[in-house]
């Protein structure tokens, strides 16, 4: 009896969960945990190219940013709230890889500032007229006790600064360069940065073209402040002092930093979750072989959004872990 229970508890889920034979190939990903869906064909045209999605979370609300081309071929960035209602729809918004939440819980996307409650536009030039110069994108902002530290990567170094106050006045224009890694010392390219307000940490996703690996570096608010104010250990590399993960991925595999772990999309058919500390794969989700999708995970690890490019349908689902 115990054996039968063990089989039912272990073998059956393994078979049904992992084997392609038991997956409806026409069903969309996460079909067993979808909570919301809507068509976006009134907003977007051809989504097959240059479609990106990211989730912004300020600790109390989260929004989905989707960038894609509309029916006229124009680049458009659209913010959906957690009910998939359109809250913002703008042309030619700056790179959403430079989107983050500020100290007030409002969202910075490129140079624009949006309300953290309803994504209403607050400012079209959050960095103000010079001085200082707005950061060179891609970049992100990390909230610290001292203010918002702008962080970006320039080949082999991590640049921390300037430092902005809650009202986006400049506290410090100082930009400090900290070497990223000893070996390989170069070849780093920015992929994305996500902030998990629940843990007060940000995940920086970098691709290293020399060793063909993805680096995920976890930066706490304190570490960001130390890097900006110069108290970060002198001569130390970022990866010497901060927790980080090196994952074998393809160059363009989407990688998401979440509270649950680091999610890697393998060939867009298999989603793998790696433990942040050990790098061990702890969960896998596989779906059918149909469709062309973009995905985005919320930093708190609770939600996954997917966009069917051909049918222009947006889905919101609970994560499987």
């Amino acid at each position: 009896m115990a054996t039968m229970k063990a089989l039912a508890a272990g073998l059956l889920p393994l078979l049904l969960g992992a084997c392609q034979l038991f997956i409806d190939p026409a069903a969309p990903p996460f079909d067993d945990r979808l909570v919301l869906t809507r068509l976006v064909d009134d907003i977007f045209g051809d989504l097959r190219d240059e479609t990106e999605m990211t989730v912004l979370d300020n600790g109390s609300r989260h929004f989905l940013l989707v960038r894609g081309r509309d029916r006229h071929g124009q680049q458009r960035t659209v913010a959906f709230d957690s009910r998939l209602r359109v809250r913002m729809n703008r042309l030619h918004l700056w790179d959403q890889d430079s989107a983050f939440a500020d100290l007030n819980g409002d969202f910075v996307v490129g140079h624009s500032l949006f309300s953290g409650s309803d994504f209403r536009l607050l400012s079209d030039n959050v960095y103000g007229d010079p001085p200082p110069e707005p950061p060179e994108f891609p970049a992100t902002g990390i909230q610290t006790a001292a203010g918002t530290v702008i962080v970006r990567v320039d080949s082999n170094v991590l640049q921390a600064g300037p430092l902005y106050a809650a009202d986006w006045s400049v506290i410090s224009t100082e930009i400090r360069n900290i070497p990223l890694n000893a070996d390989p010392a170069g070849g780093f390219e920015w992929r994305s940065a996500r902030h998990d307000p629940g843990r007060g940490r940000s995940g920086l996703v970098l691709w290293n073209s020399e060793i063909k690996r993805t680096f995920v570096i976890e930066i706490s608010a304190q570490a960001a402040a130390e890097m900006q104010d110069g108290s970060f250990p002198g001569g130390a590399h970022v990866t010497d002092e901060l927790p980080h993960l090196i994952i074998s991925t393809n160059e363009h595999s989407p990688v998401f930093y979440t509270r649950r772990g680091v999610v890697v999309l393998h060939d867009r058919r298999e989603h793998r979750v790696y433990h942040r500390a050990t790098g061990r794969r702890i969960a896998t989700y596989e779906y059918g072989n149909g469709g062309d999708f973009s995905f985005a995970y919320s930093p708190d690890g609770k939600w996954v959004y997917s966009m069917d490019h051909s049918r222009r349908r947006l889905y919101k689902a609970r994560t499987w872990w």
Partner: peptide
């Protein structure tokens, strides 16, 4: 019904 043996999985009718 579509269902996977995993926490949070919900059946949908087909």
């Amino acid at each position: 019904t579509r269902y996977r043996f995993a926490a949070g999985s919900r059946g949908s009718g087909v």
